[in-house]
Computed example of a mutant assay.
Amino acid sequence: MAQDARMVPTVAPAEPSAIRLDTGGVAGATAPEAWFRQYGVAMTRNVSTATLTPFLPDPAKATGAAVIVAPGGGFLMLSMENEGWRVARALADHGIAAFVLKYRLKPTPAAMPDFEQAVAAMFAGAGRPTSRLRPEDAAAGLAEPIADARAAFALIRAHAREWRVDPARIGMMGFSAGAMTTMATALTAPELHPAFLAPIYGSMEAVRVRPDAPPLFAVLAADDPLFARKGLGLIDSWQQAGRPVEFHLYGQGGHGFGLGKANTTSTEWFDAFVRWLDMNGLLTRLQDGGAAGASGTGATKP
Rank of each mutant, 00 (worst) to 15 (best):
Q3H: 15
V11W: 00
S17K: 12
S17M: 07
D22P: 02
G28S: 11
A29Y: 11
E33C: 06
W35L: 00
G40E: 01
V41E: 10
R45N: 06
R45V: 11
A50L: 09
A50I: 11
L52M: 03
T53S: 13
F55P: 00
G64L: 09
V67A: 04
V67C: 12
G72L: 00
G73E: 09
S79A: 15
E81D: 14
E83S: 04
I96W: 14
A97P: 06
F99Y: 14
K102M: 08
P107H: 13
A110K: 04
D114G: 03
F115K: 00
R128L: 13
P129F: 13
A139L: 12
G141S: 12
A151M: 10
I156Q: 15
R161E: 10
A168D: 13
S176M: 04
A177C: 04
T181N: 05
L187E: 13
T188M: 13
T188G: 02
P194C: 01
M204H: 07
M204Q: 15
E205N: 05
V207M: 12
P211E: 02
P214C: 08
L216W: 06
A218C: 05
V219D: 14
A221H: 07
D223E: 06
F227Q: 05
A228P: 13
R229F: 03
R229T: 12
Q239S: 09
G242D: 01
V245S: 12
L249G: 09
G260Q: 10
T264S: 07
T265E: 09
T265A: 08
M279W: 13
M279I: 10
L286C: 00
G290A: 07
A291V: 15
A291I: 15
A292E: 12
T300F: 01
